[in-house]
């Protein structure tokens, strides 16, 4: 008996260090522990909290779908859903269009190409909150530099109320989001563009294809797999955006810029209704799943395009 325990221990040791699965388990342990404790468990806990009336400092009880029923009748929640969809759609389309344009420009033969590439990534490197503060100052209701320039040009007679008017505020936060998102889209698409052989373009040009035809028939189809992935990431991050709105408007004026993420924060942390906040966060999951599935099929198509079997 005394000898059995060490033998079993050493056999477990041997299994851990020698066999594939033992070693794999051992190596996966730190990452798996972190992700299970702080990612999988919270994800499940979040879903559970959505079914309870937990408040800050008070553990809640199971109340079924009450949070969701409450949200269903809450016009502010539906406004935030509408805002999120609007924000994501408009910002993503603009980011894609402008980002692709910038990528195409950078793909040309340019002097100081690497310098430009480095400069263009800057908005993406700087912390969002800090660059959003700069935008806050640019959007100031009295001393906005944009208003100043437009007034000096004689285009407007009084300063634009960027963040005080619902429509202006929406446009302003979208503009700031696009500003921050363009570099990511442009540089990623540029990497994709660089893998397209110029010889294809040259051959098409010799056959008499116009630049527009070359763009739509060669560049876009070859770029589409990477476009799918980049845009999925972009849509995901825009959909769940929090920082920019929190800095610029905190959801105002009259909830016109409240996204689901900011509404969830406002209800849960300053409002103390953890359960309701969690329910709003859970309501975002179906949209995220849709985006992930879209990405999955984008990747599938890529395999097929490369001639690999499924």
């Amino acid at each position: 008996m005394a000898g059995a325990a060490p033998t079993r221990l050493s056999s477990i040791y041997g299994w851990l260090l020698e066999s594939k699965n033992g070693l794999g388990l051992l190596f996966m342990l730190p990452a798996a522990a972190f992700l299970l404790c702080f990612l999988t468990y919270p994800l499940g806990l979040g879903v559970w909290l959505g079914f309870t009336d937990t408040k800050i400092g008070r553990s809640g009880i199971f109340i079924g779908l009450e949070n969701y029923e409450w949200l269903f009748d809450d016009p502010i929640f539906w406004l935030s859903v509408y805002n999120t969809l609007l924000y994501t759609t408009v910002a993503s389309v603009l980011k894609f269009g402008l980002g692709l344009w910038l990528a195409l420009i950078l793909n040309q033969h340019l002097p100081f190409k690497n310098l430009f590439r480095a400069i263009i990534l800057l908005p993406w490197v700087v912390p969002t909150v800090l660059s959003a503060l700069a935008f806050w100052w640019i959007y100031d209701s009295q001393f906005s530099i944009i208003s100043y320039v437009l007034m000096n040009l004689g285009l407007i007679s009084e300063p634009i109320n960027f963040l005080g008017d619902p429509t202006n505020a929406r446009a302003s936060v979208i503009a700031a989001n696009v500003w921050r998102g363009i570099p990511f889209v442009a540089i990623s698409l540029l990497a994709g563009l660089q893998t397209i052989p110029q010889s294809l373009n040259e051959a098409a040009a010799l056959d008499g294809a116009t630049p527009w035809q070359r763009f739509t028939k060669i560049t876009l189809p070859l770029l589409s797999p990477i476009i799918a992935v980049v845009m999925t990431f972009s849509v995901l991050f825009t959909f769940t955006d929090f920082q920019l709105i929190y800095v610029l408007t905190r959801g105002g004026p009259v909830n016109a810029t409240h996204l689901m993420a900011t509404l969830s924060f406002q209800r849960a942390i300053p409002g103390g209704q953890l359960g309701e906040g969690a329910a709003i966060a859970v309501a975002m999951i179906p949209f995220l799943l849709a985006a992930i599935l879209f990405s999955f099929f984008g990747l599938q198509r890529r395999k097929w395009q490369q001639g690999a079997s499924d």
Binding site: F38, L39, Y41, P42, L43, L45, G46, L49, T54, T240, D241, F242, A261, S264, F265, A268, I269, L274, G277, A278, A281, V282, M284, I285, L288
Partner: peptide
């Protein structure tokens, strides 16, 4: 943004 509430709880 969907993890911060349960994480705050934890």
């Amino acid at each position: 943004s969907i993890l911060f509430i349960p994480l705050a709880f934890i």
